Computed example of a mutant assay.
Amino acid sequence: MKVQFSVNGKSVEVEAEARLTLADCLRHKLGLTGTHVGCEHGVCGACTIIVDGAAVRSCLMLAVQADGADITTVEGLSHEDRLTPLQTAFRRNHGLQCGYCTPGMLTTSHALLTNEPDCDADRVREVLSGNICRCTGYVSIVEAVLEARAAYRTDAEEDRA
């Protein structure tokens, strides 16, 4: 089936079998390998992307379900050659270790901060509880997300103006 959607601001059309997951489509058909596949059951969060503004497990979504959607992967979070405030905060707070879970953590955090720029530490922990990391104790990740809130507050204020 032909499927059309937007990925990181670019319109794409792919030929997809009905059973192809969106994660595999992004990785193998579009070369967007920042979306990692871990458990393939939607439990680990490594494959999290943003679909129409919501954090979604791309291993549980079929590519054909994405027809007409607006998708953002971890590659779409960057601003050309520089890191975003969220990525900078992860780096500054040592919120990444081996890097396998990092794309899912970043996309989940981005979706949270876009919708709730004033979230507190408890809310960050709650939202990130669906993203498994075996290398860290999550403290540095939560600190990074909390540090990045200021940039999202500024973005939200500019959008309202």
Rank of each mutant, 00 (worst) to 15 (best):
C44L: 09
A150Y: 08
T84S: 15
E15F: 07
R91D: 10
V145Y: 05
E147H: 06
Q65I: 09
C59D: 08
I49N: 00
L113F: 11
R125M: 01
C133N: 09
H28Q: 14
G9T: 07
R19Q: 13
D159F: 11
H36E: 03
H94F: 12
D67V: 07
Q4F: 12
R125T: 04
I49Y: 01
L22Y: 07
R27L: 03
I71D: 05
G42S: 10
A121L: 03
H94G: 09
A66Y: 01
L106K: 04
N131I: 07
T72S: 03
V43I: 15
M61D: 02
L30H: 08
A144G: 11
A18C: 05
T21C: 03
V56Y: 01
S78N: 13
R134M: 10
A156G: 08
H36A: 05
K29P: 00
E143A: 11
R19I: 03
C119Q: 06
C44Q: 00
T21H: 01
R27N: 04
E80T: 03
C119N: 04
A16G: 06
D52K: 06
E17N: 14
A18Y: 08
F5D: 03
T84H: 12
G34N: 06
V64W: 07
M105C: 10
V56T: 15
A111H: 06
L83N: 05
L30K: 02
R92T: 14
R149A: 07
T102P: 07
V74W: 00
V142K: 12
H41Q: 15
Q4N: 15
E147F: 07
L83R: 06
D24R: 15
Q97A: 14
E13L: 10
T84A: 08
R160C: 12
A111R: 01
M61S: 11
G68E: 10
C47Q: 00
C47Y: 02
G76T: 06
G137E: 12
E147I: 02
T33S: 13
R91W: 11
V127H: 07
V51R: 12
D120Q: 07
T33W: 00
E17F: 07
G53Y: 08
H110P: 04
